[in-house]
């Protein structure tokens, strides 16, 4: 087929592109993923009973803010990676800011703590299950985020997959915060982060073949 014939084929009877509808469709898929993560959290783990007490503690909000800023950051980066020619710029570096702030808090907490209680600040009571729980909670959002990304056109598929995975991981961490009793900054800076990095890593690996077009 000559190029001119291909052009005629592509242009013939071309249908209008409804950007609004495409955005609604993506929002609906992401909404379903988020709902899946929330339902999984409520039905599988349940909301902690002492949530009202926990909400009085600054570290509870710091934990939520940590996951929420990473969520917004990952969403922003994923959005830019989803369209050809969008500048990603320094947005990925901005993702390091909440991590560094939390690590600073963790360093202060460890520095002020008595030596014998430092182990508890780092390991808490649930370090063995925290990352895997966050990764499992993120699964519905993970599927949704990659699904939406697949309908777009990332020119860096692995990176786009990683950003989608981090977005899902941050949602998982946010949901997990309503169950998990751990509030120590060192714990969150290690195990929550690890939990979010599992889907990010998986997204990067899957993205490098799933998101090609």
């Amino acid at each position: 087929m000559k190029t001119d014939q291909l052009i005629t084929l592509l242009a013939n009877g071309v249908s209008a592109v409804d950007g609004q509808q495409a955005r609604r469709h993506s929002a609906m898929i992401l909404g379903c993923g988020t709902l899946g993560t929330v339902l999984l959290m409520v039905m599988w783990l349940g909301v902690r009973r002492d949530l009202a007490d926990a909400a009085l503690l600054p570290m509870f909000w710091a934990k939520l803010a940590f996951a929420a800023t990473l969520l917004v950051g990952a969403y922003t980066v994923a959005l830019r990676l989803s369209r050809p020619g969008m500048r990603v710029g320094h947005a990925p570096l901005a993702l390091a800011v909440p991590v560094l702030v939390l690590w600073l808090l963790a360093a202060v907490a460890l520095g002020m703590a008595a030596p014998e209680s430092r182990g508890y600040l780092i390991l808490g009571v649930s370090w063995q299950v925290c990352p895997i729980n966050i990764a499992l909670l993120s699964a519905p959002s993970f599927v949704a985020a990659l699904w939406v990304m697949r309908s777009l056109a990332p020119v860096r598929p692995a990176l786009a997959g990683a950003a989608s995975g981090l977005f899902a991981g941050a949602l998982g961490a946010l949901a997990y915060s309503f169950y998990c009793p751990e509030l120590a900054a060192p714990f969150i800076g290690i195990w929550y982060l690890l939990g979010m990095l599992i889907p990010a890593l998986a997204g990067g690996m899957i993205g490098s073949w799933l998101l090609r077009w």
Binding site: M1, T3, L6, V17, G19, R83, P84, A153, W213
Partner: peptide, 15 residues
């Protein structure tokens, strides 16, 4: 040709 087809298939991603 491949690029033209890609431009067409991904034209909804043009902002």
């Amino acid at each position: 040709q491949e690029t033209l087809l890609a431009v067409h298939n991904q034209r909804h991603t043009y902002d």
